[in-house]
């Protein structure tokens, strides 16, 4: 999955002074299970009531195929310390996730050419 690819670039993100976090609507227990299974080191956050995804407008209404609840549209959002979006990539199709490969390079370019 794309989060594992991000994990592989963790060193590059650290060099760029960029923290990583994954966000979903999953319950805390599911996040813990996923962390154990995937070995991802960065935090997995639960977006309570979808407030983060609503703020960014990336809610997929009823997108959960299991229970029909709202979930996030796959997206990568680079956020500055003042809350400004520095770079982003949002999926147009849920089968085609934002490409994690090469993200570290694109993030570095976002700092060089804001």
């Amino acid at each position: 999955m794309e989060l594992v690819q991000l994990q592989k670039q963790a060193e590059s993100f650290a060099e760029s002074k960029v923290a990583l976090a994954a966000v979903s609507s999953d319950a805390v227990e599911d996040l813990a299970n996923m962390k154990k299974k995937t070995g991802i080191a960065f935090p997995l956050l639960r977006d309570e009531n979808g407030r983060l995804m609503k703020e960014f407008g990336i809610v997929h209404d009823g997108g959960n195929p299991v229970d029909g609840s709202d979930i996030a549209r796959p997206a990568l959002i680079l956020l500055g310390t003042d809350g400004t979006v520095l770079w982003s990539e949002t999926a147009e199709n849920y089968r085609v996730r934002p490409g994690a490969a090469g993200v570290a390079r694109q993030v570095e370019q976002a700092f060089e050419h804001p």
């Binding site: 794309e2 959960n64 979930i71 549209r73 310390t81």
Partner: peptide, 13 residues
């Protein structure tokens, strides 16, 4: 850090 990269994903099921 100077920024955080938020990776929104659909969930784990």
């Amino acid at each position: 850090n100077r920024a955080i990269l938020l990776a929104f994903y659909r969930g784990y099921w």
